[in-house]
Design a protein around this nucleic acid. Structure first.
Lengths: 345, 345
DNA sequence: CTGAAAGCGCTTACAG
DNA sequence: CTGAAAGCGCTTACAG
């Protein structure tokens, strides 16, 4: 490996001067600089990162720590979009990204390990559920540079970036109501699979139903399913069958996530129910945009994932460069996308 | 930051003994070991990576270097699956993965930068097209530890992992022929968008047509399109229209990639052509498996992406641990998946 | 079984 | 404008 010493020898200067040239420090005679630069080129010298990291305490790398499985389609897509935003900012600051994946069910996993090892200057956590309390406490106590994406932390002692799920839920529902819909069903998550974001969407839905239609929670129909195919399929099929039996099909369905809409469409199709003529649909996430299998666009709420990644990275780097900085947070508005799946009644 | 010195002080030993305990070196009195371990726990000591890296020359990190855009769906999926295999192996060896993305059109980009900086011990390159010759030359000359995925290099001086596209193309075509198909069209790539893998699939197709049906290249129908929506759409639509005019619909189509099949299905549907009754379809990649929008499975060739990632990582780590090792390569068989999209004539 | 010395590649004061 | 010294956190011989 070529070191500053080798370059120094070749250029006939001390290695300190080489360091000066490499770091563009100035205070180097033009002639000397050229000599050194030539030696660097000839020898193909590249500054070693660990030497520098050791005495600067900075490693110009951040970790994206996530339990999101690379193999699962919808999830991986979420991660990749966030990552593309993070990567863009990191690159602009000449930083690298360590992608650190772990099994959420592994309770012994140390989320902060890469930081503890000083392999990274800070961490962006992209989770499905909340980080364990013990980690949150530690982050807080030791003021580790960390930004959480997609999980609004109640503690103001940590930085996070999230979307305004409540308003988006409220807004989507009022859009439906404005178009004449009154009989709207929310397709939410099973009570035992807690997800704060989806809960907020549901709360937004309920609030709009109350505000605009005067309906209490007890008067609102909510169906529920877990994340898996079978659960979604069973839950929605049962619901549709019941509706047909009672001749009580709602005019619109607000699905808590886009992920389950393909299945819903299949079930509706099998039951000869047309979208949006007989039933309108609104989703959430923006994962079905321009899907080649659809010849119309599903109305949805498009999460600004790339922007969230960018912002999280910016917050993190500011914090890294200024350890005194207090934690900050940012809530993103989720733009509503009209699509072709809502009928005006 | 807590260092070995701090631990040593607390435990009343020298920092060298601490190093011994941390690295499980043995030659430490049980009593001393316990004292040190307690001090480590109390202080929350974690070995710093850069100190270790500096004198071992190893950093326990590998880079996955790729021009694949995180935002583009089919591509990102390919990357993620490969990555999941790489990650699994890296994790088992207590290594981290640096995900290094770059713009393929940026000719000044230095693919090997993370390695030159000694930020990683080696690189796995996951590309769309071949690495620039200048990089290949450099890898060869300096014997950098690097494994290329998805690009069969002619130079035996580099390690790579690839799939046997020719055999898979040959095999798929013969499956069609065995089922009674004679009039088979290959939907390949525009001549100006060279992609070695897809070319091999096409060559496999041609060979099977020759071997089993005695058809020369000139007697085989091949349609072509680029990667983009418009090109695929126009090319396939024109073809179908022409077939209808001449009443010459083939009995089967072999699409070079699964990525374009959704569009093909849409166009066939619009033209009232049913799959597989009127036309059979075979794809390539395995990206449409269990797609919620399809109520049948498309026959395809499933690239073993995860396994490829695993193997690439294994090859890389072996090479890192033994620099004398000669480059190796592995060609994966692409299993054929029957699906429901082929009619027996 | 334990510790003092030297060094990995680099930078940060300090001296000249 | 340039260099000798000290040190970042660690490990690898070597001595005892």
């Amino acid at each position: 490996m070529v070191t500053q010493k080798d370059v120094a020898k070749k250029a006939g200067v001390s290695f300190i001067t080489v360091s000066r040239v490499v770091n563009n420090e100035g205070n180097v005679k033009e002639e000397t600089r050229i000599k050194v630069e030539n030696a660097i080129k000839e020898l193909g010298y590249f500054p070693s990162f660990s030497g520098k990291a050791l005495n600067s305490g900075k490693c110009n790398t951040i970790a994206v720590s996530t339990p999101i499985n690379y193999d699962v389609n919808g999830r991986a897509e979420y991660l990749m979009r966030v990552l593309s935003g993070i990567d863009e900012v990191a690159k602009s600051l000449q930083c690298d990204v360590l992608l650190s994946n772990f099994d959420e069910d592994d309770t012994t996993y140390d989320y902060l390990r890469p930081f503890r090892q000083r392999k990274v200057d800070g961490i962006i956590y992209v989770g499905l559920k909340q980080m364990p309390q013990i980690m949150l406490d530690e982050l807080k106590t030791f003021r580790f540079p960390c930004v959480v994406i997609g999980d609004r932390l109640t503690e103001s002692s940590l930085s996070w970036v999230d979307t305004d799920n409540f308003s988006a839920g409220y807004n989507s529902t009022s859009q439906l109501i404005q178009k004449g819909h009154k009989d709207i069903v929310f397709f939410g998550l099973d009570k035992n699979v807690f997800n704060q974001n989806i809960t907020h969407r549901e709360q937004g839905f309920l609030k709009a139903m109350k505000d605009f239609l005067g309906k209490d929670e007890s008067q609102c129909k909510i169906i529920r399913a877990s994340y898996d195919f079978d659960s979604i399929s069973k839950s929605f099929e049962d619901f549709i069958l019941e509706c047909k039996k009672n001749n009580s099909l709602p005019t619109a369905i607000f699905s808590a996530t886009d992920e389950r809409i393909p299945l819903m469409l299949r079930i509706l199709y099998n039951n000869n129910i047309t979208v949006p003529d007989e039933i309108s649909i609104v989703g959430f996430d923006g994962f079905l945009m321009n899907n080649p299998f659809l010849n119309f666009q599903i109305a949805t709420n498009i999460q600004p994932l790339k922007e969230m990644g960018q912002t999280a990275a910016k917050i993190l780097f500011e914090r890294i460069n200024n350890p005194e900085l207090e934690p900050t947070s940012k809530i993103f508005t989720v733009p509503f996308f009209q699509g072709d799946s809502i009928k005006t009644l």
